[in-house]
Each structure stands twice: as structure tokens, then as C-alpha cells.
Deep mutational scan, measured.
Amino acid sequence: MATKAVCVLKGDGPVQGIINFEQKESNGPVKVWGSIKGLTEGLHGFHVHEFGDNTAGCTSAGPHFNPLSRKHGGPKDEERHVGDLGNVTADKDGVADVSIEDSVISLSGDHCIIGRTLVVHEKADDLGKGGNEESTKTGNAGSRLACGVIGIAQ
């Protein structure tokens, strides 16, 4: 089992970053940390998408990683996509320092995120509470600013 993974985020604009993942036990939580720069100040949706395909930019990554066919939600919700990591918060300089621990994603097994795409979005994720159909699919997080395929790390 891989215990570490990394993702280099890039987009068409100024947004870029490096996100690290570490899972010490196969059924334990995954620590997610790193930094994203070039964002507007505020909240930005942060999700693992189904495919590791960036051939047409971030759009070819498909929908959120959702092997259990659930509705979109927040990272602490029972009803959520596996890939729903909530929001990252950018400061006035456009930098989001990421520090998350998640017990639904994994670096092995059915919820493995390796080979899938991590995406940072234009807007805040409403965590499935926006009151419309799009909220239950995407959290109304808007366009995909930057993305990268999650790969095994040393």
C-alpha cells in the first residue's frame, strides 16, 4: 500500500500549488496538507474528481469521485461524495494553506484517490446545502481553477 501521495495543481491562470497526502494505516485517516497560491481571497471548493484525465484541462477530470452514488455534502457529513473535501481558505495575498484530515478518502482500496484528479474551484462549496439540484452534485463551487493528478510519492 502506498502511504504517501502528492498532487501538483496547475491551471490556465495564476492558480498553482502542491498538496501532499499521507496515510499511516490502511483504514486510518489521510492527512492532506500543502499550499495553493494565486486564488482570490475567501473560500474555494476542494474536491477529488473521478478521473485522472487532464487532456482537456480540468474539465476532463469528470464529476466528483463518488463510488457510493451519494449526494454532495461537506467533509463531516454522512451523506457526501468520497471526493468531497470541503473548502480551502485563501488569505488576502491569495494563498491557501491547506491542513485537512479526512477519514473517507484513502490511498488504497475502494476509496483510493491515487490516479484521480484534485481540483480547486472558483467559488465556495455550499456543502450540499444550497437548496438546488446543482448543490447536491457540485456544491455550486463554480469553474475549475486548477487541477492535477494525484500520484504515489516516496
Rank of each mutant, 00 (worst) to 15 (best):
T3C: 09
V6P: 02
C7N: 02
C7R: 01
V8T: 08
K10T: 14
G11A: 09
D12T: 12
V15I: 11
V15A: 08
E22I: 09
E22T: 08
E22K: 12
Q23Y: 15
K24Q: 06
K24T: 10
G28D: 09
K31V: 09
V32Q: 04
V32L: 09
W33V: 10
I36R: 01
K37S: 12
L39T: 11
T40A: 12
E41I: 14
E41L: 12
H49S: 01
H49A: 02
G52R: 02
D53H: 15
N54Y: 07
A56D: 08
A56Y: 08
A61I: 02
G62V: 02
P63E: 11
P63D: 05
F65H: 08
P67H: 03
L68Y: 14
L68G: 05
L68N: 15
R70S: 08
R70Q: 09
P75G: 11
P75M: 12
D77Y: 08
D77R: 12
R80I: 00
H81K: 01
H81L: 00
H81E: 03
H81D: 03
G83R: 03
N87P: 00
V88K: 02
T89W: 06
A90T: 08
D93E: 11
G94L: 11
S99F: 15
I100S: 12
I100M: 12
I100L: 13
I100P: 04
E101V: 08
E101M: 08
I105Y: 05
L107T: 07
L107G: 04
S108K: 11
G109Y: 12
H111G: 11
H111M: 11
C112I: 13
I113D: 03
T117F: 01
V120C: 13
H121G: 00
H121D: 01
H121C: 02
E122F: 13
D125T: 01
D126F: 02
D126E: 03
L127R: 07
K129R: 11
G130K: 15
G130H: 08
G131F: 04
N132Q: 10
E133L: 12
E133R: 09
E134W: 11
E134H: 15
E134C: 03
E134T: 14
S135Q: 01
K137H: 06
T138V: 05
N140Q: 08
A141G: 08
A141S: 06
S143I: 14
S143P: 06
S143N: 11
L145Y: 12
A146C: 10
A146H: 05
C147S: 03
V149P: 09
V149Y: 03
I150Y: 02
G151P: 00
